[in-house]
Write a protein that binds this DNA or RNA. Sequence first.
DNA 1: ATACATGATTTCTA
DNA 2: TAGAAATCATGTAT
Length: 398
Amino acid sequence: MDEQPRLMHSHTGVGMAGHPGLPQHLEGTGGADGDGRKQDIGDILQQIMTITDQSLDEAQARKHALNCHRMKPALFNVLCEIKEKTVLSIRGAQEEEPPDPQLMRLDNMLLAEGVSGPEKGGGSAAAAAAAAASGGVGADNSAEHSDYRAKLSQIRQIYHTELEKYEQACNEFTTHVMNLLREQSRTRPISPKEIERMVSIIHRKFSSIQMQLKQSTCEAVMILRSRFLDARRKRRNFNKQATEILNEYFYSHLSNPYPSEEAKEELAKKCAITVAQVSNWFGNKRIRYKKNIGKFQEEANMYAARTAVNAANASSHGSQANSPSTPNSAGSAGSFNMSNSGDLFMSVQSLNGDSYQGAQVGANVQSQANGGWPDAPTPSSVTSPTEGPGSVHSDTSN
DNA sequence: ATACATGATTTCTA
DNA sequence: TAGAAATCATGTAT
């Protein structure tokens, strides 16, 4: 650092502070030694022009020589003048960029997903929100959530280290360029504004890289979300017990398989699923049963038989006077009222008749099924829509 | 690989 | 707004 870099100040004019006694006008130095000076300037320019062709050491040496050359201040002034004249065109390129809407969107999303926000909390909050939206399934849900959170924090960590890396690289590069410019300002005039501009260009470049990082982070989060939190994707079949409970209710209320709100809650509790899932299940079951009764006959028989056994046990144990409530659950008796006795009776019948053949019992169940459905399909075999111990039609049409 | 089963979602209707 | 119907997307058995 033998010499301070001399930055060009706007409109400083040709008289540079660091160069007292400079010739104000080169062209004014005519006469005898004019030719000599022209020759000198020609040399300098030639050296400048060829400086890039030389090796680094050579160039360094040449640079030093140029810096020490007696004509150097004069050349510097000429460059200053030229710069003064061309600075307008540079200024034209300067513009204030508005905040990029896409970048803002990415930032917002990363913030919302808890990737770029304050340490923890954000992520778990987002996960909880998403879980609530997807209608969680209780136990195994929390495991998936911790998995989700772990993955999210992994993304978060990668994002932050990458971001830091980019920022560091950006700073390093900026200081490097600024040093370079300062260094160059010894031989050519550089205004602070130019440096500022250069820095902003560098920052723009790096911010576009950052944007790519943000973009890919967003994508990763979206993929993670859809993979872990989209209810459809992570559909799990209910466990056997839950399905049995639901089926038992369905087939023992076949004449009116529309559980009340309380009944749904009860079922949801027993099955460890949500009320909405119970509603879904009954919706699906009703429509699928109705669409293809034949296919469900075996199942219907099975549950009817099971219900019958339960009922038989119940009646043989206690007094049979007021037993016809819920077949298998005392707790839910209150809401399961209508048509229970009919179902039960039928089931018992079919069992007692020791003809536990799919077709026969199926016919029983089916005849029952028409009872209360708003628009149940009426299979030709079914004749008695009300109750049907006697209406066994041996429907085997499947 | 395929077909079927099944829970969830969407759209429509009364 | 609950439920029917159609559809989607995944789970599972073959």
